[in-house]
């Protein structure tokens, strides 16, 4: 699988500028159909690339392969790709969950440690309320998944389109940056404290973060 992707990366360099643009949009769009079998996806992408390279050598246009509406053609391809097996999809789901928890906990710990031991700010320990932290974690995971999904949809939408850089910067900055960041902050600020409390030293957060991350890698290997 990896070798097919590497071969694709190499061969793509042989495309001329216009063909490269249209093919890479196609590639992005088809790969973003995340619940399809990866092998079949990469194999058909390679077939299309080989075909396009032959057309290019013969001086023919990419539209002879993709038709007049490349996006519709990409949808046809995606529609015929077989589904990914659900076991793999579930493993990838848990991988996402634990990677997210790992990075979030690790960064939280790292920032707290730097502030406390570096600048003498913040406490050396933090108190968590089991009820509050559980609800916040679940809600954060929900937001993170919606965010990833929305981002995938956004990128597919930009395929086969010329989107102005300023629009892209503003839109992604607000929708995928400021908005979710504000929501996360509000969540932790306004959520009332309930449930039994636990107090831990902040450096433990770094270790817990690493454990979550390793768990994520475990699920990735299982997938």
């Amino acid at each position: 699988m990896q070798s097919l992707i590497a071969e694709n990366n190499e061969k793509r360099k042989l495309l001329n500028k216009e063909n490269k643009k249209i093919y890479e949009d196609m590639l992005m769009y088809v790969r973003l159909s995340y619940n399809k079998s990866e092998t079949e996806t990469e194999e058909v992408l390679m077939e299309l690339l080989d075909h396009l390279l032959i057309l290019q050598q013969e001086g023919r246009d990419a539209s002879e392969l993709f038709g007049d509406d490349p996006k519709q053609y990409a949808n046809e391809i995606v529609g015929e790709l077989p589904q990914m097996i659900s076991k793999k999809l579930i493993m990838l789901f848990f991988m996402g969950v634990f990677y997210f928890l790992g990075v979030a906990t690790f960064l939280n710990g790292l920032v707290s440690v730097i502030f406390h031991y570096g600048f003498g700010l913040l406490e050396s320990s933090q108190t968590y309320y089991v009820g509050t932290i559980s609800i916040n974690t679940l809600l954060s995971l929900g937001i993170a998944f919606i965010l990833v999904y929305a981002f995938i949809r956004y990128i597919s939408w930009t395929c086969f389109k010329d989107v102005s850089k300023i629009f892209e910067l503003l839109f992604t900055g607000i929708v995928f940056g400021a908005l979710p960041f504000g929501t996360f902050l509000a969540l932790f600020y306004f959520m009332p404290s309930f449930g039994p409390s636990i107090t831990i030293e902040v450096y433990w957060l770094i270790l817990i973060g690493i454990c979550f991350y390793l768990l994520g890698s475990f699920f990735k290997r299982k997938a």
Binding site: E40, V44, E47, L48, D50, H51, I54, L55, E64, L65, F66, G67, Y73, E76, I77, G79, E80, L81, P82
Partner: peptide
Amino acid sequence: GYELAVKLQNQGLDVSEGSIYPILL
């Protein structure tokens, strides 16, 4: 793939070359 498209065209079947890939899938 490409060989198949050529053979179809040589038969006189005037189909867009890309249309074979969704069918092959």
